[in-house]
Amino acid sequence: MKSSKNAITPEIRAKERKSFRSRLKRYAPLYLLALPSFIYLIINNYMPMVGLTLAFKKFSFAKGIFASPWNGVENFSYLFGSKWAKIMFKNTILYNLVFLVLGTVFAVTVAILLNELVNAKLKQVYQTVILIPHLFSMVIVGYIVFAFLGGTNGFVNSHILTPLGAKAINWYTKAKYWPVILTIVHLWKGFGFQSIVYYATLVGFDQSLYEAAMVDGATKWQQIKSITIPLLKPTVIILTIMSLGRMFNSDFGLFYQVPQNNGMLYTTTTTIDTYVYRALMMDNDVGRSLAAGFLQSILGFIVVMLANFTVRKVDENSALF
C-alpha cells in the first residue's frame, strides 16, 4: 500500500482498475443491497447541502435559493458580539464534555453490571426499566422535573426542604443549580439506551477468555479490568468520536423544555440551539438559522477530524477512519 502511494506506475493503476472491476463483479449483489441506502443518503443527506449556500445569502422567497443575493458573513454576526456569545458557546461545549464523560462511564458501568447478572428474568426487567426514560418526550420530562422542583407544590420543596426546616428554594429563578439538575436529567434519560448499546457489545465477547482467566484464579475485578474494558475500548472510542461531531449541538428539548424556557436560568441553560431558536422566533429568517447550523456542523467536523487524528496517532486500529 505504501509503495503504491509513493510511485503509482501505469501498470499498478491498470491492475487496480482491473481489481476494482473484478471486485465490483464479485460483490455486485452486496452493492445492489446497499443501493437503496446510498440513494437515500444522497437524497436526504447530500443533496440538501446545496442549501447551505443560503447561510451566505440574503434569502428571498421570491427569487429562490440560487437567485438570492450573496451577503457575505452577515448572517453570522448576530451569534457574536453580545454577552450571549460567550455564554452559549461555553455552555454548549462544557455540557457536552460533562455528558460525554459521565455518560460513558455511567453507561459502561451499568452494562458491565448487567452482564454480571445471572438471573435472566431480572436482567430483562432491569433492561426494560432503565430504557423507559429514553422513550419519554422531553416535554413530559420537563413536567416531571417541575413536579420535583415546583415552587409551591414541588416534591423537593414541600416534602424535603420544608419538613427539614430549610427554606424553600425558588428553583426556576436560581441559575446556579441548573448545571447539576440538567446533568442528572440527561444521565437519567440517556444511560439506559447507551448501556444497552455497550451491553450488546459485551455479550459478543469470547467467553473462553473469561474461562481461561477464571482457571488462572482471576477475580471478577481483575476480569473486568484486564478483559472487559480493553475489549470495549474500540466501541467506546467510536461512539465518542461520533458524539464529538455533535459537540456544538445540544439536545434542544433538554435545554428548552426542561427549564421551561425560564429567563432567569438563561445564563446556565442557553446553548447555541436555544439562543438561535429564541432569536429567530422573532422573524422567519432562513439565512440566519442556516448560518448557525452551518457553523455548528463545521466546528463539529473539525473536532471529529482532530479527535480521529489523535486516536490514529495513539492507536491506529481504534481510529474511525
Binding site: 453580545s82 454577552k83 438563561y266 439562543y275 429564541r278 432569536a279 422573532m282
Partner: peptide, 12 residues
C-alpha cells in the same frame, strides 16, 4: 444583532 441580544436580556 443588538435587537436580538436585547430581546434575550428582556426575556431573561
Amino acid at each position: 444583532d443588538q435587537y436580538v441580544a436585547v430581546d434575550s436580556v428582556v426575556k431573561e
